[in-house]
Design a protein around this nucleic acid. Sequence first.
DNA 1: GACAAGTCAAGAGCAGTGCTCTCGTTTTAG
DNA 2: CTAAAACGAGAGCACTGCTCTTGACTTGTC
Lengths: 229, 229
Amino acid sequence: MNAGQTARDRARAELTQEIKAAARRQLAVEGAERLSLRAVARELGLVSSALYRYFPSRDDLLTALIIDAYDALGAEAEAAAKHQDDPREAWLAVCRVIRAWARQHPHEYALIYGSPVAGYQAPDSTIQPAGRVAFVLLGILAQAQASGVLTPTTAPEPSQPLAEQLKVLADAAPGVPLSVLARTAIAWTQLFGMISFELFGQFAGWMDPADEFFAEATGQLATFLGLNR
Amino acid sequence: MNAGQTARDRARAELTQEIKAAARRQLAVEGAERLSLRAVARELGLVSSALYRYFPSRDDLLTALIIDAYDALGAEAEAAAKHQDDPREAWLAVCRVIRAWARQHPHEYALIYGSPVAGYQAPDSTIQPAGRVAFVLLGILAQAQASGVLTPTTAPEPSQPLAEQLKVLADAAPGVPLSVLARTAIAWTQLFGMISFELFGQFAGWMDPADEFFAEATGQLATFLGLNR
DNA sequence: GACAAGTCAAGAGCAGTGCTCTCGTTTTAG
DNA sequence: CTAAAACGAGAGCACTGCTCTTGACTTGTC
């Protein structure tokens, strides 16, 4: 499958990966803002200007790291969902795995779910990998609905304009009522709000280990969605 | 009340305010990461080293801006709560005003609720102003409870370790059941998760104006808390 | 009212950054 | 075999936060 590739092509692909790996290593230590092209080059024994043959700018390197981070988190979520049959348990497992990944890779989490990097505008190419995690969660709901274990809730019907926007979610979760999709968006934003609060220090001094709260919140929101035990 | 202040003291206090104002102006345009001491000094017609007499480092200037931002948001929340008698309406009004402030001052919002600035460790002096908004929300619940309009919910009792952590909230909301305080933390994290998603571009391409979703989510969560209409 | 002590802004300088351009060298493709 | 393309090295530009020194100005105290 590498046929037709010249030695230069292979070396280029390899070095591109090495640059990303070194950048990720720096990211883990210093954070996105402190990620320095010169330091990456230094680590690889290159001169800084050489990196520009592989990434036209620092922003392009960041974009690559963002996409990789979305993919890594998406893969974790998919794996967690596969190992659970019961929809409620699957939902909770995915929530747990997202939090665990975020805690293990705080700077990568901040890169994708934190405030945007200064002067950086995420290109459209990041939208698709960003949807991967959402796709997993919606799939769990669709499966629950299909197997008839999604308890009907008293959730109100969303207004017409909101229903229109929720249609995007409906494509990934056929059969799930719009009222549940609205609550899915609520649960989704709660999940990432909670993780962000934990990682960004908003819980400092009172909810310091957030384990108990996390379990309570995800459990209540699963019920809120109609994923009863 | 300025008695005893020398001309030098007054000049110093004034210039300190001017530095913060100029920094805030830059913050609004460029974001926290791009905030440059040299640019602030340039705007004020000073040389960069002169700023170090007023703020020992860039981080200290950031800390001052963070505290100011927390205070500004806290003041908005307090004002919004005062103008509403009905607890549910007060809750919703505070949520709306928080979102409005965040949208008007996205970089200041990111500074306090986004990912921490690289290499910056928020000092403890930011914890107290950070609690101001939470204090307003908890006060609304306490008032609702006191006037008997907080509908008892089916919320489960929190586990013992979680109950211990929620005690911090209980001090600001005397009489409110722990089960409701747990849900308050859920609603709180949902609120800021939702606003962060909106501001940081996670809604891009599908929930673009988030007005409808915001109204729906805050309404459902108010009910979730027992703040019935 | 003079004077030492403290405070001030300015300027030079250090080490670091992203990025551009040029220059030989090496590898590729025709 | 040769022209073209790609490569890494290096110098250099404009910028950053921060430190240190220098000379002028304001204080509170004799």
